[in-house]
Amino acid sequence: LINCCSTCLTNCTLGNLIKKKAIHAGAACLGSVNLKGRSCLTLKDFSSDEIKKLLWVSGDLKHRIKHEKQYLPLLQGKSIAMIFEKRSTRTRMSTETGFSLLGGHPCFLTSQDIHLGVNESWSSLDSVMLSWLVYKHSTLEELDREASIPIINGLSDLYHPIQILADFLTLQEHYGSLNGLTVSWIGDGNNVLHSFMMTAAKLGVHLKVATPKGYEPDKGVTEEAHRLAKQHGTQLILTSDPMEAARDSNVLVTDTWVSMGQEEEKKKRLKDFHGYQISMQTGSVAKSDWTFLHCLPRKMEEVDDQVFYSSRSLVFSEAENRKWTIMGLIVSLLTDYTPQIPMLKF
């Protein structure tokens, strides 16, 4: 027994030393990642380490500002132009308050205030502002080609990268680690799903997707997601059966079935999405620790009250993290900031 315990103690000590060295090596690796000057149109363009660095910076800012009550004027003297083609509560509030909290000056502009490409050339704002756009994705790509400053996609018809950063920070905080989790998307094959598909595999997360027939994700995005899953050794499963997608999953996610501009399709969409509402019955086939995400605003047909207001629902933490992750993203694109907290466990 004595020999056995001594051997176990030695093994545990060696194991801990190896683990600590691996953690330090990982922190050093992420610490060397520099995103200054980059744009963020889609997380498709970011590597696994780059996404982890963004989440680490976001978690660091949240800890230092929210919990330690530190003032970090990292963006003092900088301005951001937030140009919106569609209304957005969380995107506008998280960006305005977050940018101000870091000492910068946010400028909110609507399509009535400015006409890029018509009365204003692409380059007329380029020399003075970081630009925040809500546009067709092709327009974002055109602007990024012309601009010499970082462009951030607040939401486009193809991707919603800032939402996914908030989602994964929320899951990292709740579960303590992301690697090996299974996320199930049950709903429309939209821009939020596309961003999940471009990100999950890079974080070691399995993804199961249930969409009604005719509402599948973009073909090109799907092909790239399969490639990423193969590269990173994760699963990507696409189905039209919500219960099949939910089975053995850690996280159930949905979004609006009727987005802005789709109001005329509402009656047909509600019929086509029948059976896709997330309820406790959906969760009954998931893992015992399952949680729920929704980027908001939520409607009753998408998820019932029993799930939405339950302890399994992380939607309000998720909404708060929109601010911390957009702050982390902007700081990473504009500065050489190094996180002060230990590296997050991924």
Score class of each variant (00 low, 15 high):
residue 1 L to M: 14
residue 8 C to Q: 12
residue 10 T to W: 05
residue 14 L to M: 10
residue 14 L to H: 09
residue 14 L to N: 13
residue 16 N to I: 10
residue 17 L to G: 02
residue 20 K to E: 06
residue 22 A to M: 05
residue 22 A to Y: 01
residue 26 G to Q: 11
residue 28 A to F: 02
residue 29 C to T: 11
residue 33 V to I: 15
residue 37 G to Y: 02
residue 40 C to I: 08
residue 41 L to E: 01
residue 41 L to Q: 04
residue 42 T to M: 10
residue 44 K to R: 14
residue 44 K to L: 08
residue 46 F to Y: 15
residue 48 S to H: 04
residue 52 K to G: 02
residue 52 K to S: 07
residue 54 L to K: 11
residue 55 L to W: 05
residue 61 L to A: 07
residue 66 K to E: 02
residue 67 H to P: 00
residue 72 L to S: 08
residue 74 L to V: 06
residue 74 L to T: 06
residue 80 I to P: 00
residue 82 M to E: 03
residue 83 I to V: 15
residue 86 K to Q: 06
residue 86 K to F: 02
residue 87 R to I: 01
residue 89 T to P: 01
residue 89 T to M: 13
residue 95 T to A: 15
residue 98 G to R: 07
residue 100 S to T: 09
residue 104 G to V: 05
residue 104 G to K: 12
residue 105 H to I: 07
residue 105 H to F: 06
residue 113 D to K: 15
residue 114 I to V: 15
residue 116 L to I: 15
residue 117 G to C: 09
residue 117 G to A: 11
residue 118 V to E: 07
residue 126 D to K: 00
residue 126 D to N: 15
residue 130 L to D: 03
residue 136 K to M: 02
residue 138 S to A: 15
residue 140 L to Y: 03
residue 141 E to T: 14
residue 141 E to H: 10
residue 144 D to A: 15
residue 148 S to P: 00
residue 152 I to A: 10
residue 154 G to K: 08
residue 162 I to H: 05
residue 165 L to C: 12
residue 167 D to M: 14
residue 169 L to G: 07
residue 171 L to M: 12
residue 172 Q to P: 00
residue 173 E to P: 03
residue 179 N to I: 08
residue 180 G to W: 05
residue 184 S to R: 07
residue 190 N to C: 11
residue 199 T to G: 04
residue 200 A to L: 10
residue 200 A to C: 14
residue 201 A to D: 01
residue 202 K to S: 05
residue 202 K to H: 03
residue 203 L to D: 01
residue 203 L to P: 02
residue 205 V to R: 13
residue 205 V to E: 01
residue 208 K to T: 00
residue 208 K to M: 03
residue 215 Y to E: 08
residue 217 P to M: 13
residue 217 P to T: 11
residue 217 P to Q: 13
residue 218 D to P: 02
residue 218 D to L: 12
residue 220 G to S: 10
residue 223 E to T: 14
residue 225 A to Q: 04
residue 228 L to G: 04
residue 228 L to S: 04
residue 231 Q to A: 11
residue 233 G to D: 01
residue 235 Q to N: 11
residue 236 L to D: 02
residue 236 L to I: 07
residue 237 I to L: 15
residue 244 E to I: 08
residue 244 E to H: 13
residue 247 R to K: 14
residue 249 S to G: 11
residue 252 L to T: 06
residue 255 D to M: 12
residue 259 S to Q: 07
residue 262 Q to E: 13
residue 262 Q to K: 14
residue 264 E to C: 13
residue 267 K to I: 03
residue 268 K to F: 00
residue 269 R to D: 00
residue 272 D to R: 15
residue 273 F to V: 10
residue 275 G to T: 03
residue 279 S to D: 05
residue 281 Q to T: 08
residue 282 T to R: 08
residue 282 T to Q: 04
residue 284 S to Q: 10
residue 285 V to Q: 08
residue 286 A to L: 08
residue 288 S to D: 07
residue 290 W to K: 12
residue 292 F to A: 12
residue 292 F to L: 11
residue 292 F to Q: 09
residue 293 L to K: 08
residue 299 K to W: 00
residue 300 M to C: 01
residue 304 D to F: 11
residue 305 D to A: 15
residue 310 S to K: 12
residue 317 S to I: 03
residue 317 S to K: 14
residue 319 A to E: 00
residue 320 E to Y: 06
residue 321 N to M: 09
residue 321 N to V: 08
residue 322 R to V: 04
residue 329 L to H: 05
residue 329 L to N: 04
residue 329 L to W: 04
residue 331 V to S: 09
residue 337 Y to C: 11
residue 339 P to M: 14
residue 340 Q to M: 12
residue 344 L to H: 04
residue 345 K to C: 06
